[in-house]
Design a protein around this nucleic acid. Structure first.
Lengths: 89, 89
DNA sequence: TCTCTATTTAGATGTTTATCTAAATATCTA
DNA sequence: TAGATATTTAGATAAACATCTAAATAGAGA
């Protein structure tokens, strides 16, 4: 849970996650969407990967990133459990 | 979303949130559950409050904290939307 | 093999964060 | 009103973090 919420605690990383909802993307394609240096984006991708929110695979010269829905599900469940256990829900 | 994920990016605050699932608690009761100074817990409560994850109400000498389920719901929806939009779900 | 492109690693810097102690504020009760 | 309890505010410090530039690594293609 620690690495998960740490990964989510950044607007850039949340936006990357939302971009990967639609389609898999290479590191370069992702970086092109931001006004941030490629090394910084690479670092963000690494943090998302540590949290297992995304996975990566080399595709020739490129590295292709994909969202990992099972961890997103686990996170959603964390919230839903709080709601279920609260009296007011 | 910023203040929300910032608030959740701390194990102490997540534990406070889980404690408040079961029942409302005073600041002192909450602090008693941790090996952390009361001012530090007060600071954590403030951050949870800024994120609107909890609310507070004075009860005489005490201040009683309660979980705010609507914001937890919003957070859960953030994750569920990612799942809905992803192809693999 | 040489060079170009894609990506990551290393090292540095300024900012944010979690924590502490000491002091301030608010309420209760004698 | 004085003293005790509950909680927050203020100010300080060390650790974590986002970002940058420069350099390293890995594969593609001539």
């Amino acid at each position: 849970m620690n690495t998960l919420f740490k990964a989510l605690n950044d607007a850039t990383r949340r936006r990357i996650l939302q971009m990967l909802q639609d389609k898999d993307m290479t590191a370069g394609e992702i970086a092109d969407q931001f006004d941030i240096s490629k090394p910084s984006i690479s670092h963000h991708l690494d943090i998302l990967k540590q949290a297992k929110l995304i996975s990566s695979e080399r595709d020739g010269q490129f590295i292709r990133y994909a969202i990992n829905t099972t961890v997103v599900e686990e996170a959603a469940n964390w919230f839903l459990e709080i709601l279920n256990k609260s009296d007011s829900s």
